[in-house]
Design a protein around this nucleic acid. Structure first.
Lengths: 147, 147
DNA sequence: ATATATCCTATAGCTATAATAGGATATAAA
DNA sequence: TTTATATCCTATTATAGCTATAGGATATAT
């Protein structure tokens, strides 16, 4: 039940791209500087989100990243899934990418632990899959930071 | 957002102790054999749960573990907390053991990510803190297992 | 041509989990 | 009192995943 730093960095940085949607693309260097993240590390994260279909990139001078679709079409749940994998606490309780360990001695359909964790998963999903990148504006982000 | 094997083993084994509450105590060896878990590993887990106040133990011949309180007073959430720590996806979104990183550049009270993760935490809690050890009976457990 | 950006891959360092191991201590029963 | 059986305690190993750094290849606007 832990969110990786990768996901946190992504969630910190994506609102900038949301605000800039249909305007100019933003460079990794700029975003990294805004949020005090290692450029090279953030580079990996945004590259991953591009491969996952959330972002598009332009190379070369004046290049950078931008959202591939409008902010309200990107849920926070799907961003976290792309980075950390399923929201479910155990693999067999995932709905988007279920995986049942073949060595598991319990029957898939009636396993009480799996059913419990499905309920947990659904409750997590009810928050993260309803919230999209339009949650935050960069103005609010800037106002939020100390100083 | 992942449940450790330790917690899974605990959740698999505790219903046996719940069924046996006010009856005889059960040995690690017996429980380990029932659920096909390493004895030495399960030993560590049950010792931990004893220190956390959920179990009592008797040493020597005919010894073993038993619940310290009735099954319905032990929530699944508290078992997981004792083993894996807070349910919250990030430390500052915990309610039982909140910890705000002093180096975090965002203000505690108004941080949008923290507030989001508090909602996630509450939704997880709404499942795991309402469910107790009386969820499962051992009869059902036995019927559940293959063969 | 040059500066600037993404792209790609390798690798090091660190941390947490999972599991194994050996022996100390306590207790019931022979 | 001896023996068998149980918990107790600590150390250590193995593994895996996360975090971050690094170097250079490739593309593009100026």
């Amino acid at each position: 039940m832990k969110l990786s730093k990768k996901s946190i960095y992504a969630l910190r940085v994506l609102p900038y791209l949301a605000e800039s949607y249909d305007k100019k693309s933003l460079s990794v260097a700029y975003l990294a500087q805004q949020e005090q993240i290692s450029i090279k590390y953030l580079e990996q994260i945004l590259s991953l989100l591009r491969k996952a279909g959330f972002l598009v990139s332009e190379r070369g001078k004046n290049g950078g990243y931008s959202l591939r679709v409008p902010p309200d079409e990107i849920t926070l749940g799907n961003i976290i899934r792309a980075i950390d994998g399923p929201l479910a606490p155990i693999p067999c309780a995932s709905r988007t990418a279920p995986h049942h360990d073949p060595n598991c001695p319990y029957p898939y359909d009636t396993c009480w632990l799996r059913h419990l964790m499905l309920r947990v998963r659904d409750n997590i999903s009810n928050v993260l899959d309803r919230e999209t990148l339009s949650v935050m504006t960069v103005d609010a982000l800037k106002a939020e930071r100390k100083e």
